[in-house]
Design a protein around this nucleic acid. Sequence first.
RNA 1: GGAGGGAUGGGUGAGCGGUUGAAACCGGCGGUCUUGAAAACCGCUGUGGGGGAAACUCCACCGGGGGUUCGAAUCCCCCUCCCUCCGCCA
Length: 431
Amino acid sequence: MLDLGFVRENLELVRQALRNRGLAEGLEDFEEIDRERRKFLVEAEGRKARRNKVSDEIANLKKQKQDATSLIAEMKELGKEIQELDEKAKGFDAQLRDLLANIPNIPHASVPVGRGAQDNQEVRRWGEPRKFDFEPKAHWDLGPALGILDFDRAAKIAGARFAVYRGVGAKLERALANFMLDVHVREHGYTEVLPPFLVNSASLYGTGNLPKFAGDLFKLEGTDYWLIPTAEVPVTNLLRDEVLEAEELPVKYCAWTACFRSEAGSYGKETRGIIRQHQFQKVELVKFTLPETSYDELEALTRDAETILQQLGLPYRVVVLSTGDMGFASAKTYDLEVWLPSSGEYKEISSCSNFEAFQARRANLRFRRGGKGKTEHLHTLNGSGLAIGRTWLALIENYQQADGSVLIPEALRPYLDGLERIVRPPEAPKR
RNA sequence: GGAGGGAUGGGUGAGCGGUUGAAACCGGCGGUCUUGAAAACCGCUGUGGGGGAAACUCCACCGGGGGUUCGAAUCCCCCUCCCUCCGCCA
């Protein structure tokens, strides 16, 4: 959420930011609502001041055993007026807050202005896509053939956009999670947390998923529980309504969780394989930082995520998202895109963003300098480090061999009991 | 699921329906004292929203939302969370 005073004083700038994001206006009524709200506020508060004053007079009269009936009668009238004015002011206030809650963050000056993904800019590349002397297969062919991935039974027990991992496939998923967590904890200094996979709506509001994107989420019927779409939600909200000391910053958490997304509106897109699922696992990095260091911290966080791809030997590139492709709450986002031989293109595997104070204002995340003075909103950042399902498939595809087996990169072998290769059985296992 | 007890400022913790935005203590800041520091003493020390060029001033906020009242941190109702006990349970 943007600061009300800021929007009021920089309306044109905010409008331009919306246009840069490719959004049709959303602020047409801002000035009028703001003006009406203040009008009723001033009227109500003036009457309240009078009421407070007279209430004291009544108290004094009563203390002196004098009659106060005429004043009380007057206040009864005034009370009704106040109630009416309050209701009107409250109505405009709600409209204003609703408006504000639906305005996305302002992109950082370094973000390229563009209409969508086609305007994202490549920042750097790492690794060389491997040259195959055979036709590389897609993971949705490799996986079932190796007996490590089962889509049919997943459809039976749950539906479309689910997968069952089997045998080494299941273990590989688990190994990747452990590997990623270990790297971030040991080498990058993050504190591991394991949060609830269900959160309340206040948490989703804090990160900016609500009120606007309820349709992307799964909600438990008849409750205020929602399945988390990413660990960002519970972990960012961990420190909600708290005041930190400046010296504690940055606070760095990493978390492995399952993630759940309704994927409404993505019908027909990436329906094959495990690229886009209702449920997947992810290791997430979350940082709480000082405002003045948040962009340095974004660079560092992005590098932290890149480390995983490098240690696994997976070629990738880093792109900075254009204004038209950025998420609602983000001020700047780098995507990590891993090379997929089956499609011959780079595919998103991590998204690293600086939200500046956008989430901090919504979630009331503050800090204080030197234990004194005014509290300020801190900055929040997060990034996938990495999406495990997509790492799994990138690994299978990039390390596939002509005979259908898959080599395991060195760094991962300790997590798989030293396994060097996933071998294709003569026949796919029945059960 | 049932019964009871709680939720107050950065922290601990008082608070008869009417100078309580809120005692006291701790912490923090400033000062006195001191060569310096500590101790002691004195003062200051919440957030948000309006009005005002400013000085300043007004309003709201005691878990959240309603209500009673001229007036609510204090009374009533609903909800959330925490604690204790019972039941159930991975």
